[in-house]
Computed example of a mutant assay.
Amino acid sequence: MIGTDALQGMVLELQDEMSQYRHQFGIRRNEFITEAMSCGMSEVEARSYAIQSIGPVVPVECMPTLAPGKTRPLSPLLAARYRYVGDWKEIDEHLLLPDEVLRIARTEQFRGWISDMRNYWVESAPYRFGDDRLSLLSVANEEEGHFSMLVWKEPGEEPEVWTYASQHEYRFSHLLHWFKWLNGRSEE
């Protein structure tokens, strides 16, 4: 369990990481446009995908899990994330509000990915944990199954973040380390 002083420091550090991620969008946008154009996309089309959309803060009191009707209380880092911004879309990362978590988690396509991971990807989060210990944090590509999940291992502790993309898994001990990874400074 993380001590109170350490946790307060982590919340402040997370706020800084979220601010950096938000304000360095221009750099990521330019990199995305350059890469997309090198793959044959027109500049106009690339720019149409290279957007950042930040919704207003909305009250969030709990996080829905993949188990119907089951929620988890917000941890201090998750509470800080939802106090910072609401819905947050950027190029290929969509940090979800709880209503979007519920919508996506109920889709046949998402349930199919969870089932496949549970059946065929040994040691994946769905293989190791039940739906009541998993929440959806963000989606990078809904069609291809690129998403990040919260893994609630122990009550009262920060959930881990496990990211799945292109048949790869990345694990982070909590939200702060995930944002550092998004900012290009992974510590794990």
Rank of each mutant, 00 (worst) to 15 (best):
M1C: 04
M1K: 09
M1N: 02
Q8I: 10
Q8D: 11
G9H: 09
M10D: 13
V11F: 05
E13L: 08
Q15N: 14
Q15R: 14
S19A: 15
R22S: 10
R28Y: 10
R29L: 04
R29P: 01
N30D: 15
E35I: 03
E35M: 11
A36W: 04
M41N: 01
M41S: 01
S42W: 02
V44K: 12
E45H: 00
I51C: 09
Q52V: 08
S53G: 00
S53Q: 15
G55M: 06
P56A: 13
P59T: 08
P59E: 09
V60I: 12
E61L: 09
C62K: 14
A67I: 00
P68T: 06
L77T: 05
A79S: 04
A79Q: 06
A80V: 07
R83N: 13
H94P: 05
L97H: 01
P98D: 13
E100N: 13
E108A: 08
E108I: 04
E108T: 11
Q109F: 00
I114R: 12
S115H: 15
S124L: 05
Y127M: 05
D131C: 12
R133I: 05
E144V: 01
F147T: 04
L150M: 13
V151N: 12
V151L: 15
W162T: 00
Q167H: 11
H168N: 12
S173P: 09
W178Q: 03
W178P: 01
W178H: 01
F179K: 02
F179V: 04
W181A: 15
W181K: 08
G184E: 14
G184C: 13
G184W: 14
E188W: 08
